[in-house]
Design a protein around this nucleic acid. Structure first.
Length: 840
RNA sequence: GCGAGAGUGGCGAAACUGGUAUACGCACUGGACUUAGAAUCCAGCGGGCUUGCCCAUGGGGGUUCGAGUCCCCCCUUUCGCACCA
């Protein structure tokens, strides 16, 4: 093999990438014999925007490091990639450039594939998944039909989030701060017919199983838990004055039944069906319409406002009549859309009551001893002792909750209920570039699903984009007009497409299918072999959306008998953002660093090394151009040391050399020492790669190893010492080990170095064994503290006794300044080989 | 407002169960090599002064022989949720 004297990354990287591709080095195989444990390493697949950015590079560098490490450790590794290729940008680009989304998407996928390959990630490219491919979304349509059959997909009219700029509806998860998650436009509310997935049917399981996801960051689990938002309480009927039967009552939901005696008014959502019934006066009707209108135009919080409907309800516990208000802060789609207001013990009710001069009755007092200083001021939101509540007086809040609920149930006016904040997942999108929903509307039969055998329903290509108003599908007669699968009569196709989060809810299952000619979405055997994903890596921005949907989807497919799996992702690593000058990289801030340019200048290994070295993966990473140069400098040094300076010496050494018995005694002490340091680093690396993944510390340890090696060799050369065979063998082992440790981070140059040194491919090598050279650290440094303060460090024989350490300490001038005689020592604490603490 | 995390040199960061704080790298300074520079190599690099000590891990208390690490209070900051009754 020809050896270059200096580091030519272009040559090395293109050579390695060529070999990897040609030999299909990273093709994943189900290990049928079962001799190898499996490892599924997954990174969140990208949207094909056209260019990868630093966030992608970081995400994939992390995943690649893990995948390569696990291969070295003998795992059968699945490390796939794909493209989440449906979505709005393609459509917007099509409108702007008067092209077709599929062409735009295809060329973006091509150029991003080149970029990913240029970075040398160890993907099994034969398993690529492209979600806009009918061969992929065909199965999604099948799942949809099966969900429809099982009541897990349904259509209903409801108030949904509408983004005018994206011209489509959005799911609740996709609204952030009243704004669209994609474009930041203000969300308005529209009442529309929409398709939903019944994710709330799985709310309890999605919540419960979070406890088992021990490999997830607490932060993400908490976010999901809060998003699901389970709360238990009581729903009670309040009769409306003047009507006798409960049918005419108003049902409210409360989590604080213990405060029911303090309920002084009922507040209902302006969208509550009773609101229109109760509000008869024309002026009040106008007021109601105004409040409804305001709630529709913006999700933003307005000032609390409302008005008296003119009707009264009867508090079933006090029998007092209390006014019914319409209030803009009451949500229609949570609980029952109406509440009992207890201004004494609820902040919101208090604010409203103050504004409209409503009665405030205290029914809870702080219990003495319950809080440090009982704060008597209202509203008092904590638990306490019940007052003003008839027979329930004196109970604690907890007891009262129970007894009042039980009493309401006994009376038949209430029942204990559990509510979730989670809403069903609205999946309809009024856009073209997405997976078509496989149903038609027949004049005779109504909504009719397509036959499974008619799938895929292919998204038509002959589209003209005007950029105006509705989805172009709505105007495409050749698409819309069809025959009813049931009666054969005229039918119109559904023109909504699915939320692109549906595709990303199961792509990781599709990767397991190698032979895509087979007419299945995936095979049960493959799923049970590869799933769950052992390590998932991606951005925290998907903590609720994608990660919740995917968990839901897996549970649905499990219940449709596709496989037996409860949770898809065993371990989750959420990497931090890549920032520059303290801000997220963005075109508008002008702080974008282009991976392509860096690769051109320094090569892929350098970019990857910097990104993994500069910060631990979960933290934000501050971009630093001179830091990149530092990474480049290190790789040059690595190359010069191993290849330019010492390859000739070590390449012909037999790595099968067996150390004879007793040869340990002949080993040079310096060699023993660096090999011992190496063993510490091997151990530490294995520990880090077991889940914490702080690559930065592994890399810095490797830098130290290389520095120590160089120092040692410089010393040898200076002293013109002759290395014996055991020394040479161990030094080669040392170099090979450093190469292997660094391989997951800088795979190209390490592959090259390994092959030059050994004449074989590093992919055939395995993780280094620790070699016991019988290295004994003869001396160790013991820190000596006097009264807890560091005073000196003394060198002592390893494993010395406490007494001899004390003797040695007292020999030190520095120590003797504080302790003249042994007799003045009151106490000593001795941590073997580490520290001696003397109290005087 | 509620919930979770973070705060260590000029900068990115190390320090696993309390045990020599600042490893590794960047920047900076000096030196070597050079006609000069680049590159490379060597040395220095938390602060203070009386050169051996004092002060330093956001601030203040506490526990301990010993605290970046554990406990309490406060400040700053990032993220998530925000009328969910």
């Amino acid at each position: 093999m020809e050896i270059d004297k200096s580091y030519d990354f272009n040559k090395i990287e293109s050579k390695r990438q060529f070999l990897w591709k040609n030999k299909k080095t990273f093709g994943a195989q189900n290990d049928i014999s079962g001799s190898k444990p499996k490892f599924y390493c997954l990174e969140m697949f990208p949207y094909p925007s056209g260019k990868i950015h630093m966030g992608h590079v970081r995400n994939y560098a992390i995943g690649d490091a893990i995948a390569r490490f696990k291969r070295l450790k003998g795992y059968s590794v699945l490390h796939p990639i794909g493209f989440d290729s449906f979505g709005l940008p393609a459509e917007n680009a099509a409108i702007k450039n008067k092209t077709n989304p599929s062409g735009w998407t295809k060329s973006n996928i091509d150029s991003m594939t080149l970029q990913l390959k240029r970075l040398g990630f160890s993907y099994d490219w034969d398993r690529i998944v492209i979600t806009s491919d009918p061969a992929y979304y065909k199965w999604e349509q099948l799942f949809f039909l099966q969900m429809l059959k099982n009541g897990l997909a349904y259509k209903k009219a409801s108030n949904v989030n509408w983004c005018e700029s994206c011209h489509t509806t959005l799911a609740n998860e996709q609204v952030e701060d009243g704004k669209c998650w994609r474009c930041g436009n203000n969300i308005t509310i529209k009442n529309m017919e929409q398709w939903f997935f019944n994710i709330t049917a799985y709310a309890e399981e999605l919540l419960k199983d979070l406890d088992d996801l021990k490999g997830w960051p607490d932060k993400v689990r908490t976010m999901q838990k809060n998003w699901i938002g389970k709360s238990s309480g009581l729903s009670v009927f309040f009769k409306i004055e003047g009507s006798e039967d409960n049918e005419d009552g108003i049902e409210i939901f409360t989590t604080r039944p213990d405060t029911i005696f303090g309920a002084t008014f009922v507040a209902m959502s302006p969208f509550h069906p009773l609101a229109k019934e109760l509000v008869k006066e024309p002026e009040k009707r106008i007021e109601l319409e105004r409040i409804i209108h305001n709630s529709l135009v913006s999700k933003d919080i307005a000032e609390k406002e409302g008005f008296f409907t003119g009707s009264y309800a009867i508090n079933p516990f006090t029998d007092k009549k209390i006014p019914i208000y319409v209030a803009n802060f009451v949500l229609m789609d949570y609980g029952t859309g109406a509440i009992m207001s207890v201004p004494a013990h609820d902040e919101r009710d208090y604010e409203f009551a103050k504004k409209y001069n409503l009665e405030i009755i205290r029914v809870i007092r702080p219990k003495s001893g319950f809080e440090k200083e009982p704060d008597d001021s209202l509203p008092y939101m904590l638990q306490g002792a019940i007052v003003n509540s008839g027979e329930f007086n004196g109970l604690s809040s907890e007891e009262a909750k129970e007894k009042i609920s039980a009493y309401a149930e006994k009376l038949g006016i209430g029942k204990k209920v559990i509510n979730y904040r989670l809403r069903d997942w609205g999946i309809s999108r009024q856009r073209y570039w997405g997976c078509p929903i496989p149903v038609v509307y027949c004049e005779k039969c109504g909504m009719v699903p397509l036959n499974e055998s008619d799938l895929p329903l292919i998204l038509p290509d002959d589209i003209t984009f005007t950029g105006e108003g509705a989805s172009p599908l709505e105007k495409l007669e050749s698409f819309i007009n069809t025959k009813c699968p049931k009666c054969g009569g005229y039918a119109r196709r559904e023109t909504d497409t699915m939320d692109t989060f549906v595709e990303s809810s199961w792509y990781f299952l599709r990767y397991t299918l190698l032979n895509r000619i087979e007419q299945v979405p995936f095979k049960k055997d493959d799923i049970s072999y590869w799933l769950p994903v052992d390590q998932y890596v991606g951005g925290v921005e998907h903590a609720v959306m994608h990660l919740l949907y995917a968990r839901f989807f897996v549970k649905v497919l499990r219940d449709l008998n596709y496989f037996d799996l409860d949770e898809p992702f065993e371990n989750l690593l959420t990497q931090g953002m890549v920032v520059k000058n303290g801000a997220k990289m963005s075109k508008s801030k002008g702080n974008v660093v282009d991976p392509d340019e860096l690769i051109k200048k320094f090569g892929a290994d350098t970019v990857r090394l910097f990104i993994l070295f500069a910060a631990p993966p979960e933290k934000d990473l501050e971009w630093n151009d001179s830091g990149v140069e530092g990474a480049f400098r290190f790789i040059n040094k690595f190359y010069k040391t191993i290849i330019t300076a010492y390859a000739d010496i070590f390449k012909n050494i037999d790595s099968d050399f067996a150390m004879e018995d007793g040869s340990a005694g002949n080993i040079n002490q310096g060699v023993k020492k660096i090999v011992y340091q190496l063993s510490l680093v091997i151990e530490k690396t294995e520990a880090e790669m077991n889940g914490r993944y702080h690559f930065n510390t592994i890399i810095s340890s490797s830098m130290e190893l290389l520095n120590n090696f160089n120092d040692y060799m410089a010393d040898e050369i200076q002293k013109e010492r002759v290395l014996n065979p055991a020394d040479r063998y161990l030094l080669k082992y040392f170099l090979n080990s450093v190469i292997i440790i660094l391989y997951p981070f800088i795979p190209h140059v390490c592959s090259e170095a390994y092959e030059i040194l050994n004449g074989s491919a590093i992919e055939k090598a395995s993780w280094p064994e620790i070699k016991d050279t019988g290295y004994i650290q003869e001396k160790c440094n013991i820190a000596v503290q006097i009264n807890g303060k560091m005073r000196d460090v003394v060198a002592i024989d390893l494993n010395a006794s406490e007494d001899s350490v004390i003797e040695a300490a007292l020999d030190s001038n520095k120590i003797r300044k504080y302790v003249a005689h042994k007799s003045s020592i009151k106490k000593t604490i001795y941590i073997k080989n580490k520290l001696l603490s003397i109290i005087v």
